[in-house]
Amino acid sequence: MQVAILDDWEDAAARFLAWNDLPASVDVTVFRDHVPDEQELVERLRPFDAVMVMRERTPLPAEVLTRLPNLRLLVSSGGRNASIDMDAATQQGVAVCSVPSPRMSDSVAELTFGLMLSLARGIPQQERGLRSGEWGGTVGISLSGKTIGLLGLGKIGGRVASIAQVFGMRVLAWSERLTDERAEEAGARRVGLEECVRESDFVSIHLRLSDRTKGLLGASLLGLMKPTAYLVNTSRAPIIDTSALADALAERRIAGAALDVFETEPIPTDDPLLALDSGTVLTPHVGYVLDTTYEDFFTGYGEILRAWVEGSPIDALNPEALSRGPGDVRDGDEDRE
């Protein structure tokens, strides 16, 4: 069984995959680079029976899946993966299995506060200044007594809310389905979207990307933010109108933004966001890149591969694909919470 692991940028497979526990019939190839070109990707993946994908780093649309005749198994880390065309996979008889990490909420929440503290204290700018011979810099702001507005109060948003209270912050929250009971349980106050944006010193996004949330924060809502407020996004880039955000930052209509997610990943070198140094902190989608999360992911990869080889597939998101042979195409066939 030929298996490919894609986009292993951190060389994590060498550390976290239990190689000695894999069946003898499994031959794993690890790719550490990223292939954005569709034709090149097809050529790379054509020999493989199974592909392990790290979150949504490499999209697998129908145009790719239908050109991979050997592919029988896709394994995605982190549960849902919007970059895989599930209908196409099912029609091709490709089982898509998921490897959730119960510890990923902590990972993303911790990064959220790392980004907030970086903004509040100007840590990246202070560090660069020190290395260039400067001593001293800007005056930071305290998180204690500030208001954080959470867009989304699911597992990750709820964890952020609990950490915020340890810092002495007031917590507001909004999502379309949020109830007073859930907000109270998390130590937050449920408010309308505009109030959440207008009253907050930090606005942090924890919504799932959907048709309803795409472009949610456009010029209008960004214009409601305080000029001293910061925006943090560890969810999905399209929830924000990136052009409107770049304009707001360039014109200093908000104090700054910390972004871990981008419209195109890896981010192109000519992306306008890279030119905005003052008041911005940018990280390469590392919200889930933590030892505990990767332990869960790679343990799950191994378990799914062993079960597959033994003829007892587990954790399939589309179990109907298991009954289809190669090419057996049949007819008929929001909050990040």
Score class of each variant (00 low, 15 high):
residue 290 L to A: 13
residue 337 E to L: 13
residue 113 F to H: 04
residue 291 D to H: 07
residue 335 D to S: 13
residue 194 E to K: 13
residue 219 A to F: 02
residue 92 Q to G: 07
residue 326 P to A: 14
residue 83 S to F: 04
residue 246 A to D: 05
residue 236 R to I: 01
residue 168 G to H: 07
residue 145 G to F: 12
residue 252 R to D: 09
residue 116 M to G: 07
residue 91 Q to L: 13
residue 295 E to G: 10
residue 291 D to I: 00
residue 170 R to S: 04
residue 131 R to P: 07
residue 21 D to P: 02
residue 234 T to C: 15
residue 121 R to T: 03
residue 30 V to T: 06
residue 49 D to V: 05
residue 117 L to S: 04
residue 111 L to K: 01
residue 172 L to W: 01
residue 229 A to G: 05
residue 209 L to E: 11
residue 79 G to N: 07
residue 194 E to S: 13
residue 139 V to G: 01
residue 113 F to K: 03
residue 83 S to K: 09
residue 139 V to C: 11
residue 270 D to S: 14
residue 304 I to Q: 03
residue 79 G to P: 05
residue 269 T to M: 13
residue 112 T to K: 02
residue 180 D to Y: 04
residue 280 T to Q: 07
residue 20 N to H: 14
residue 215 G to N: 07
residue 173 A to D: 03
residue 162 S to Y: 01
residue 226 K to A: 08
residue 69 P to S: 09
residue 177 R to F: 02
residue 112 T to G: 08
residue 165 Q to M: 10
residue 4 A to Y: 02
residue 171 V to Q: 00
residue 281 V to T: 07
residue 336 R to L: 14
residue 17 L to N: 05
residue 57 R to N: 07
residue 308 W to T: 06
residue 285 H to M: 06
residue 21 D to V: 07
residue 266 P to H: 11
residue 315 D to A: 15
residue 332 G to K: 09
residue 184 E to S: 15
residue 288 Y to L: 02
residue 88 A to S: 15
residue 271 D to K: 09
residue 179 T to L: 11
residue 295 E to T: 15
residue 209 L to M: 10
residue 144 S to N: 14
residue 116 M to A: 11
residue 146 K to H: 12
residue 263 E to M: 14
residue 308 W to H: 09
residue 231 L to E: 00
residue 10 E to V: 14
residue 110 E to P: 06
residue 303 E to F: 03
residue 41 L to V: 08
residue 309 V to F: 04
residue 4 A to H: 03
residue 139 V to K: 10
residue 27 D to P: 00
residue 201 D to M: 05
residue 161 A to R: 02
residue 162 S to M: 08
residue 99 V to F: 07
residue 47 P to E: 12
